[in-house]
């Protein structure tokens, strides 16, 4: 028998983690949308954000929501650094070059963090008590993490749709040569877009740390690179609001499949939940390879 309470609880948790998945994929999709580069090192930037929050909270006592500001600054810094050091020279290179380069950047970040912080899995406790959503008791810290995700998405939306910079970014996406002939410095727009994408990604790492409060280690980002790819393909590569909605769908799917798998005896539902995500990826690629939200 299906336990209704369990289903509702997983819907609520699926929605919350889905929102986090959404914001953790937006940066990946933005970078692909503007620069046509797949950032294979995506998860490592999420990991960096998690460490920013861990360190600022445990060492300096900064409340986790505020650490996002620091993560955003770190993200812009890292984004500009890697753009001008590496990406700039590879934008028009064959795809394999950017895949390898971003992979290398990811490994580099992991190893640097490991050198300074060790490979141990760390965590922290930031307990604000619980609140009830639809009769389900949820940690307030998780709800705050979800709200901050939406705020971050809103901020990105305003930049892209309500500023001159955003208009230039959209112009470059729609017609690069058109943007060049009206006097847009395309290289500069690439740099800023890459930095914005990394900014959101690192900040999403802070939000994720706030949500999980455990399992923070140098390689924690890898699973989010994989999930990010599934979500990005679901959305259609390049679509920013699509990535967010697909993230929510993915979170719901993951949690509900857990419920379904739990009712089957003799299997480990948590282990299978992970593989089911990739089953979903294959199905989407076969049925609608352009993604759910792509025209």
């Amino acid at each position: 028998m299906v336990d209704v309470g369990l289903v509702v609880a997983n819907l609520v948790y699926g929605l919350l983690i889905g929102i986090i998945y959404g914001i953790a994929t937006v940066g990946l999709n933005m970078i692909f949308g503007v620069l046509k580069i797949v950032n294979v090192g995506h998860g490592a930037f999420i990991m960096v954000g998690a460490y920013v929050t861990l360190l600022l909270f445990t060492l300096a006592g900064v409340t986790p929501p505020l650490t996002i500001v620091a993560s955003m600054a770190v993200g812009i810094g890292l984004g500009l650094l890697f753009y001008y050091l590496v990406i700039k020279y590879l934008v028009d290179a064959p795809e394999l070059a950017t895949l390898l380069a971003t992979f290398a950047i990811g490994v580099l970040l992991q190893e640097i963090v490991k050198a300074f912080m060790g490979a141990d899995s760390r965590g922290f406790t930031w307990n604000l008590g619980n609140i009830e959503i639809a009769g389900v008791s949820v940690a307030l810290s998780k709800v705050i993490a979800a709200i901050l995700s939406i705020a971050l998405l809103g901020f990105l939306y305003l930049v892209i749709y309500r500023t001159k910079l955003g208009l230039a970014i959209r112009a470059v996406v729609q017609d690069k040569e058109g943007a060049m002939v009206v006097g847009v410095d395309v290289d500069r727009i690439y740099a800023i877009s890459f930095a914005l994408g990394i900014m959101v990604t690192v900040a999403s790492g802070s939000i994720l740390a706030m949500y999980l409060q455990s399992g923070i280690h140098p390689y924690m980002g890898e699973i989010y690179t994989l999930k990010g790819f599934v979500i990005a393909v679901m959305a259609g590569l390049g679509s920013i609001p699509g990535a967010f909605i697909a993230g929510i769908l993915f979170g719901l799917f993951e949690n509900l499949s857990y419920v379904a798998l739990q009712s089957i005896e003799g299997i480990q539902p948590l282990v299978l939940t992970r593989s089911i995500a990739f089953l979903l990826l294959l199905i989407i690629l076969l049925v609608k390879p352009s993604g759910l939200f792509q025209r």
């Binding site: 112009a171 729609q174 017609d175 040569e177 058109g178």
Partner: peptide, 12 residues
């Protein structure tokens, strides 16, 4: 320059 093929921004 008004480029060949116009190169407008179709979604703007």
């Amino acid at each position: 320059l008004v480029p060949e093929g116009r190169h407008l921004f179709p979604d703007l």
